[in-house]
Amino acid sequence: MTLETLRAKEELRDLIDAYAYLGDEKKIPEVMDLFTQDINYKVYMGGNLVADVLGRENMEKDFNVHAALVKTYFTMNGQHTVKIDGNTATGLSFSQLKMIREVEGQDVLTDYSVKYEDNYVFQDGKWLIKDRIGYFMIIETRNLNQ
């Protein structure tokens, strides 16, 4: 493995970690900087396509609407495997995502186990996510005790 490949793998891992960190902090404009202008983002839950967003502007609108409904995000990233081919790469990563929302005065925790399939491009000196498919594999919801 070349030094260039190792560097690219580290930068790609930093990219998916930045997505988690910035998302948890609701820094939506900074999250958008991690994507190409023509990002295509799809979400599947229970095997059904529930979101298909094209373009950074549309994605920012969707993320802002969603973030307004969530009190707290907490993300832990797990495995991340990439295949690099010059200025493009594909990746598979796994995350545990927790969200707290208020429903009828009660804090409700939703815990998601997510598999992401990504296509990346190296553009303007940095790696960006060009396409992302999120497969929400396991979803658990429960009231939090206070």
Rank of each mutant, 00 (worst) to 15 (best):
residue 2 T to F: 15
residue 2 T to R: 13
residue 4 E to P: 05
residue 7 R to A: 10
residue 8 A to Y: 10
residue 8 A to W: 10
residue 8 A to F: 11
residue 8 A to S: 14
residue 9 K to N: 15
residue 11 E to Y: 14
residue 13 R to L: 15
residue 13 R to A: 14
residue 14 D to P: 10
residue 16 I to G: 12
residue 20 A to E: 04
residue 24 D to V: 14
residue 24 D to N: 10
residue 25 E to I: 15
residue 25 E to Y: 15
residue 26 K to S: 10
residue 26 K to M: 11
residue 28 I to V: 08
residue 29 P to I: 04
residue 34 L to G: 03
residue 34 L to S: 03
residue 35 F to K: 06
residue 36 T to K: 06
residue 39 I to P: 01
residue 39 I to T: 01
residue 40 N to M: 15
residue 41 Y to A: 07
residue 47 G to V: 12
residue 49 L to S: 10
residue 49 L to M: 10
residue 55 G to L: 08
residue 56 R to P: 01
residue 60 E to V: 10
residue 62 D to P: 01
residue 64 N to S: 06
residue 65 V to H: 12
residue 66 H to I: 11
residue 67 A to R: 07
residue 69 L to W: 06
residue 71 K to R: 13
residue 71 K to A: 08
residue 76 M to K: 11
residue 78 G to A: 13
residue 78 G to T: 15
residue 80 H to N: 12
residue 82 V to T: 11
residue 82 V to D: 11
residue 85 D to W: 14
residue 88 T to H: 00
residue 93 S to V: 01
residue 96 Q to P: 00
residue 96 Q to A: 03
residue 98 K to E: 00
residue 100 I to F: 02
residue 101 R to A: 03
residue 105 G to D: 10
residue 105 G to N: 09
residue 108 V to G: 00
residue 109 L to K: 09
residue 110 T to R: 02
residue 111 D to Y: 08
residue 113 S to Q: 10
residue 115 K to C: 11
residue 116 Y to K: 05
residue 118 D to I: 15
residue 119 N to S: 08
residue 124 D to I: 09
residue 125 G to R: 07
residue 125 G to F: 04
residue 130 K to M: 03
residue 133 I to K: 06
residue 135 Y to E: 07
residue 137 M to A: 05
residue 137 M to H: 06
residue 137 M to V: 07
residue 138 I to Q: 01
residue 140 E to V: 01
residue 140 E to A: 07
residue 142 R to P: 02
residue 143 N to H: 05
